[in-house]
Amino acid sequence: MRIYIVEDSRLARQELRTLLAAIPDADIVGEAAELAQAREGIEALLPELLLLDVELPGATGFELLDQLHHLPLVIFTTAYDQHALAAFERNALDYLLKPIDPQRLEAALLRARERLQAQRHGATAAPGATGTGPGCKGADDMVFLRDGERCWFVRLGDVAGFEACGNYVQAWFEGQHPLLQRTLSALEERLDPQLFFRASRSHLINLRWVQSIQPWHNEGYRVTLRDGHEVEVSRRQAKQLRERLEL
């Protein structure tokens, strides 16, 4: 398991190294004390697992996750910050309290290992499903979504679509509608075009979530998604959608 450590205190990093030394497949590929350094290190080394301190100098661990293109699995470490961790609507990840209990660490790594294996399995079972290019995210990739104080880790394949709302983008998944501080175009560039289709100027839809397509006025379409959202597709985009689906 390729692990990257982000901790502001050198001794805390040393402590993690000591604890991880007892775990045979834990391979520490790098470490950082601050956000910028961590971002560069993670993008360059592409670790599988991130041990992330919630409190970083001048920033929080969540801000780091916001800025990452490559999002590894994340285990948070914190001295005392139940508030930040309560921010998770869906606790799709683990957290460790400092001083870290070796058994808790081992259990967290076990879970991470299982998740990674499931991901690898998914990737080989459906080749091409994990994206077409570097930095391009596919259905099985996890994304970190943040709306103010609330955070979610979501499998991209579970997101039905995105809708532009001014300078924000609203994501649709599992009945949640967080507003993300991104533009739809910036988002589109990062997503697998085989999976997400730009249905109109303000909509990006997950093609696997399409339930029905009806002819609509002006030779366009009206697409109904499985979660009930309805999106109108313009004539120009309708042609593209036809081509995409006929393949």
């Binding site: 402590e15 005392y80 400092k98 870290i100």
Partner: peptide, 18 residues
């Protein structure tokens, strides 16, 4: 200030070895 306390304890754990 639990933050201070637990960080100090965590750092001490590493320092014991070092």
């Amino acid at each position: 200030n639990p933050h201070f306390l637990f960080n100090a304890l965590n750092n001490l754990r590493a320092l014991i070895n070092e």
